[in-house]
Write a protein that binds this DNA or RNA. Structure first.
Lengths: 146, 146
DNA sequence: TACTTAGTCTATCAACTTTATAGACTATTG
DNA sequence: CAATAGTCTATAAAGTTGATAGACTAAGTA
């Protein structure tokens, strides 16, 4: 399961993408409309800023806004930022690789081979899921609904 | 990441599969050869027994052995047993479904749509990974190695 | 029957992570 | 200089994970 942090981060990013022509958006507004505890959201947005995805303005008329283009931000990056590795085993993670202590031979480990496949497919799907693409999905789903 | 419990369980199951013609295998033997803390392994094997995957015999000449056929045990089932849902969001889990409190409309949620795809692909890959298939992978990897 | 073997059950625990809250601080705008 | 709004630090409750200890029970064997 992904953490609430990641889930909240994605919702906040989608929110900011939809309103990206309105200038800076207040934390309090995002918190209220997306049902996220405000203080918790503050920390999340700060992390997204440090990661170069968002930027902010202080004082009156301030708030947060997208720094990267919506098609340059994908769920794989967001997940890694808050939850760390996407891989289900440390030994198949590319960015957070770690050997399994109990493993006898990594090269011939069948379990590892399975989870390597799962990781590759998952990263593949999550990389394709950009903010732009997520909103396109929503539009499509909303169309089907009515 | 999967828990050590799941990882240990898979290693123990593969171990028992390889030696399934030898009769009951001691917990202590599996623990030693697979580098698993014995007391921890005891609990794991007990869970696998309760799930109908293993059976055991007490007293001298006792130990654990496979009850199901190796091609009837897959990693999706083992993961669910120890780690619960495979899905990354509660709202896309089939067996452990739960609504996201903060969600405004599940039917048109783009985030959900992405994680539904990830879940489906992951379950698909893990269902195919039976004990038989894992050992076949190991043989193949060992062949390539030399 | 008594002894040994080996799985089973219950309780406990330290360490860590997650989710969240409170409050002081700093920069910007008007 | 006062109001606004993001930033930083600390704290904490709750839950999960990985592990250990010890008593108990069932099965085989002499």
């Amino acid at each position: 399961m992904i953490s609430k942090k990641t889930k909240y981060a994605i919702n906040a990013l989608v929110h900011l993408t939809k309103r990206k022509d309105e200038g800076p958006i207040l934390i309090s507004e995002i918190a209220e409309q997306e049902n996220i505890p405000q203080k918790f959201l503050e920390a999340i947005l700060l992390d997204l800023k440090k990661a170069g995805i968002l930027s902010s303005k202080k004082g009156k008329g301030g708030g947060y806004y997208l720094l990267k283009e919506p098609d340059e931000v994908n769920l794989a990056d967001v997940m890694r930022l808050f939850d760390g590795p996407i891989a289900l085993l440390p030994c198949v993670s590319y960015l957070y690789y770690e050997r399994c202590e109990e493993c006898k031979d990594e090269e011939t480990c069948g379990q590892r081979d399975v989870f390597l496949e799962v990781r590759n497919k998952t990263v593949d799907l999550l990389k394709k899921a950009t903010l732009t693409e997520i909103i396109a999905r929503e539009d499509k789903l909303a169309g089907k609904k009515k």
